[in-house]
Every structure is written in structure tokens, then in C-alpha cells.
Design a protein around this nucleic acid. Structure first.
Length: 538
RNA sequence: GUGGGAGUAGCUCAACUGGCAGAGCACCGGACUGUGGCUCCGGACGUUGUGGGUUCGAUUCCCAUCUCCCACCCCA
């Protein structure tokens, strides 16, 4: 049996209703904060993540889905064919256009030769490929006349391939990438979305619009061992505020606005016992100084710490603060803190963020042990945590990334963003709230010969926004009613000859058992009215 | 990547120290030919995750492998 691969899963009803609820709620919140949706590709050049997230991070060094886009095999084969032919029959091929790695071969008038040449060399594989295509085509189009088989060859300066039909050559010239190796491109499924958004910001010169407030909802990919609330394909809801400094993108007001938005959103979806952990990790300069100080402070004590910390002290001293080993805590407590290393602008920025948060009434906890794993973060760093999620108690996190755009070759574009782990959010909601999936308003039970009439009725009802489920004339009425109550329909509508003759249909309340006869013209209104009454009565 | 636990019917779980693979719920049919829920009767249901080994005989013991869960590493 073929199963969903490790770390991935199917989201099924009724749980999908909860996902939709979350997404609808967050879109609604984004709307009033004037954020707009951006959708970036699900895969990008590997370099994008290496440069933004950081080469040395675990994400990049061992958790990405990365593959190489090699040269087209047909191109390679044709290149080989060209070389062979050229050496065997000097002058038979002519270079008409040249770039470093591309040559256009003029084979006009030489079509037969081309084919003969191919047929003489089945080992080249080209003919095999053409024949295979021919067979596949014939299998898919039985009885049709033999097709013109087409070999697609990537060309330079043409967005699509030129075509060589087999057996009936109609092309004039063909470009072959003689190098055979348009340097294979390394691609990666996005492990997070900020890099993609910033790439798009640069690529489309979004600074021309001033301040950009963008949000996204979508899958991300990390190749880690699955765990509670951690999947290899996971979903994030995120947002970025990014723009030129002159547009105010660097202002602490933006940090506070984003955090306040998050508090609003969590309250809105019913997660009220959250805690906002707040810290400032300073600018690149501060961090460099702090890192040095930390290394120095660790040097004399590191030998007494756990093996993880010993490793961290070398690779990434900041992460020592994540240590959960009790024995290490007294040592960690005595380490210098980033707050002591913030320069004047950074400290002011951080104070102002806190000031605004207080004035809008968003509670937070300062946590100077909170550090972020990604290289691009600067200044404000935050996390919202929530109990009852096991070791993965952080439900969202984010921070400022003032230098990211430059490091990707863009203009100065300070920004701040967050990403919500949607899987975990939904998981947290599932524990408190039952997924609300709307039940059908009516189940139409057609008696023999009544499928057509029933279909007409269903169309009308649905047109009037009545959630309608349609049975089948081959079902016995008993079975229809059974099904109707099983799926939770409010009403059953019986469609039989008697009803059609009378022009009025039997409408049965499946809860009370009460049954009334409703004239056809009043059906839609009556059902939606009654259904609404039942719905609101709950 | 590391450590621990677990995989048996659609679901939740049984099956003693190795001896015919079971129950509840759900599903399907009937009692009841155009009236559901309740009741009663009947039915279908499995390569015991997969592959190998030990054994007369393996759900049970051994090895490998896959998947899930929990945690670590790490992280939005």
C-alpha cells in the first residue's frame, strides 16, 4: 500500500474546518491592519536560503529538501551526437550562431541525413527515446494515423524548444547546448518564507510602493525527524513589514504594531493563555561584540557544562541559553547578557517597543535568554508560547531583520516579521474547541423515478444557499432517512409521485420527527428559515 | 542524526509462559415494499506494518526494515 511519506499527513474533514476557521480569522485580522497577501514559489534557488537563513544553521546544513536540476538528457545526447557526427563528417554541420556554450546547427536540407545518422547510432539513445515517444503516442491515440514524433530540444533565446518531427522533418535549424551542462541549478523546497518574500521584494522593486505589509499562508518543508507538532511539510502563517527606512520600516512602532496584531489574532481564535516573550538581540555589531564576550566568559567554565553546551560554545554560543540541563543553569545565569551590549539606538528602539506595547495593553515578558536561530535576525526578537504543547510550546516566533535585504543584494530595507506554526496552532485549538463543521440543512430523498425532479430541487435550494445533500432514487426511503440523520441533516425532503402531483413536498424535521407539506414555491425560503432557527437555537 | 515506546478489523483495544485471531463501536442486510433514531436477528470484515529467521506450530521469541508516538539535537 502506498502511504503518505514520513512526516507528511493528510488533513481530513472535520479537521479541515478548523484550518479554514484559523485562516479565515487571520485573513480578517490582516485585513484591518492593512496587510496584503503574497504568494511566493514553493521552491527557490538553494543560495537564497543559504545566504539568508545562514550556511551554518542546522536548517541549511542538514534539514533542507535540496536537489539539482540537471541538464536535459536530450540536450546532452544531441550534443554528443553533434560531436560524433562532426568528427566523422567534417563540414556536414555548420555553426551559424555561437555563444560560449551554445551552437546553432544548421541542418536545413540535411533532414534525411539527420535521421539516417540517428538510426545508425541507436546506442546514442536518441532514437530509442523517439521511438518510445512514438509508441506512447500510439497507445494513447489508438487508430489514429502515425504521428509526427517530436523531439524537444531546449534552445537559446527561444523560450520553448524547436521541434523535430520524426519521419517528416520540418525544421530548419536546431540549437544544441554543446557544453551539455548548463551548470546544474541547485533548488530547495522553502524551509521558511521570509527569504522568499524578501527576494520578491528585491526582484519586483517593491520599495517603490513605500512600506509593504505582506502576509502569506502556505506549506514549508524541513527534513527533520517528525515529532509532536513538527512535520516535514508544515504550514506557516506569516507576515512581513518591509520597506525603505524613509518609509518608517525601521520604526519601533512597526514592531509594536506587529506584536499587537498577533495578540489580537490569538485572542480572536480563542487562544487566550499565551505569553509573549520579548528580547532584543541588537544589531550585527552588538551581536559580534556580545558573541566575543560570551565566548570569553564560557572559556573557563565550559568544561563543567553538558556535552551539548560544549559543542554550542564553539559553534554558536548564543544557543547555550537554550540548555535545559539543570546543572548548567547556575553557570548560564552568570553569563553576560545581550542587553548589556546594546548600543544606544538599539536600546532606545527596544524601549520604545515596550513603551507602545504597554500603552496598547499588550502584556509581555522580557526574556534576555531568548535568542533566534536564524542568522538574519536583529534587534527585536519574540516568541509567543502556549502550554499543553509538549516540548514544542512556542506557537509562533519572529523578529526584526534589518540587514537581510542588503545581504541578498537588495537596497536597505529594514523589516520585521513573524511566522505562526499553523499545525501547532490548530493542535492547540483542537484541545479547547470542537471543530465546527456545518451540517447539511436538508437531505433530499427521491423515490423511484424522481432523480430528475430531485436534481432540479437541489439546484434551486443550493442556489438559495441551503446546504443540500442529494440521495438517489434507488435507495429505499428507509435508507435515505437513515442516511439523512446519520450525516446530521436538519431536514429530509421527500420527493415522490404524490408530492409532484400535489405540488407540495413532505418536509420532515429529523430532530422532532414532525413532518409538514410545503408548496414547492415556498421550499427554499421555508427550509433556510427553519434551518437558521435550529442553528441559532444551539 | 540520537534515545525510548508502539504497530492486530474502518476506529478503540483483547488474545496467559508459543497452540484454531477475538470483543465493543462503526459498516451492510433483514424484521418494517412511501418514513430515520430504539430494539431484535443476520452478514461482511484481517497477508497480526513489511521481509527474513528459530520452531511440528509465531500476534507472541530473534534479526532487519518501514511507519507512528514521546523526547533529544535543532527550530518558525
Amino acid at each position: 500500500m502506498i502511504k503518505a511519506i514520513r512526516g507528511t499527513r493528510d488533513l481530513l474533514p472535520p479537521e479541515t474546518a478548523l484550518w479554514n476557521f484559523v485562516e479565515a480569522a487571520v485573513r480578517d485580522v490582516f485585513r484591518v491592519y492593512n496587510f496584503h497577501e503574497i504568494r511566493t514559489p514553493i521552491f527557490e534557488e538553494t543560495q537564497l536560503f543559504a545566504r539568508s537563513v545562514g550556511e551554518e544553521t542546522d536548517i541549511v546544513s542538514k534539514e533542507m529538501y535540496t536537489w539539482e536540476e540537471g541538464p536535459d538528457p536530450e540536450t546532452t545526447l544531441l550534443g554528443a551526437w553533434y560531436d560524433q557526427r562532426k568528427s566523422r563528417y567534417p563540414g556536414s554541420l555548420q555553426r551559424t550562431t555561437a555563444r560560449q556554450d551554445l551552437i546553432t546547427i544548421d541542418i536545413s536540407g540535411g533532414a534525411d541525413t539527420y535521421l539516417v545518422e540517428l538510426k545508425l547510432r541507436p546506442d546514442a539513445g536518441v532514437v530509442d527515446r523517439l521511438e518510445a515517444r512514438k509508441r506512447a503516442w500510439l497507445a494513447a491515440h489508438p487508430g489514429s494515423k502515425p504521428p509526427k514524433l517530436i523531439l524537444a530540444v531546449p534552445t537559446w533565446e527561444e523560450d520553448r524548444a524547436k521541434r523535430i518531427p520524426l519521419g517528416e522533418i520540418i525544421l530548419d535549424s536546431l540549437s544544441v547546448n554543446l557544453a551539455g551542462e548548463q551548470s546544474p541549478q541547485s533548488l530547495t523546497l522553502r524551509p521558511e518564507n521570509t527569504a522568499g518574500v524578501v527576494r520578491a521584494y528585491i526582484e519586483h522593486k517593491l520599495w517603490d510602493r513605500g512600506l509593504n505589509k505582506l502576509y502569506y499562508i502556505g506549506p514549508q518543508f524541513r527534513r527533520e525527524r517528525p515529532q509532536k507538532g513538527r512535520y516535514r511539510q508544515f504550514y506557516q502563517i506569516g507576515a512581513e513589514i518591509i520597506g525603505p527606512p524613509t518609509a518608517g520600516s525601521e520604526s519601533p512602532a512597526r514592531d509594536a504594531e506587529l506584536l499587537e496584531l498577533l495578540a489580537t489574532f490569538l485572542d480572536r481564535v480563542g487562544i487566550t493563555d499565551w505569553t509573549l516573550q520579548l528580547n532584543s538581540i541588537g544589531c550585527a555589531n552588538d551581536r559580534a561584540k556580545y558573541n566575543d564576550a560570551l565566548r570569553k566568559a564560557l572559556e573557563p567554565v565550559v568544561s563543567k557544562m553538558c556535552s551539548d553546551c560544549q559543542r554550542r560554545a564553539v559553534t554558536n554560543p548564543l544557543r547555550v541559553f537554550d540548555c535545559k540541563v539543570p546543572e548548567d543553569q547556575p553557570i548560564i545565569e552568570k553569563l553576560p547578557r545581550i542587553s548589556q551590549f546594546l548600543d544606544e539606538p538599539c536600546r532606545k528602539h527596544f524601549e520604545e517597543v515596550q513603551g507602545i506595547l504597554k500603552s496598547v495593553g499588550v502584556e509581555f515578558q522580557l526574556n534576555d535568554r531568548l535568542v533566534r536561530g536564524l542568522d538574519y535576525y536583529t534587534r527585536t526578537a519574540f516568541e509567543f508560547t502556549h502550554g499543553a504543547l509538549g516540548a514544542q510550546n512556542a506557537i509562533l516566533g519572529g523578529g526584526r531583520y534589518d540587514g537581510l535585504s542588503e545581504s541578498l543584494g537588495g537596497p536597505s530595507a529594514p523589516g520585521i516579521g513573524f511566522a505562526i506554526g499553523e499545525d501547532r496552532l490548530v493542535m492547540a485549538l483542537k484541545e479547547s474547541a470542537e471543530a465546527v463543521q456545518r451540517k447539511p440543512d436538508v437531505y433530499i430523498a427521491p423515490l423511484p423515478g424522481m432523480n430528475r425532479e430531485a436534481a432540479r430541487l437541489a439546484r434551486e435550494l443550493r442556489h438559495h444557499d441551503v446546504i443540500t445533500e442529494l440521495g438517489d432514487e434507488n435507495f429505499r426511503l428507509k435508507k435515505s432517512l437513515e442516511t439523512a440523520s446519520k450525516i446530521g441533516a436538519r431536514f429530509a425532503l421527500i420527493v415522490g409521485e404524490n408530492e409532484v402531483k400535489a405540488g407540495a413536498f413532505a418536509l420532515k424535521n429529523l430532530e422532532s420527527g414532525e413532518q409538514v407539506s410545503v408548496p414547492r414555491s415556498e421550499l427554499a425560503q421555508k427550509i433556510s428559515e427553519l434551518a437558521r432557527k435550529i442553528q441559532s437555537g444551539r
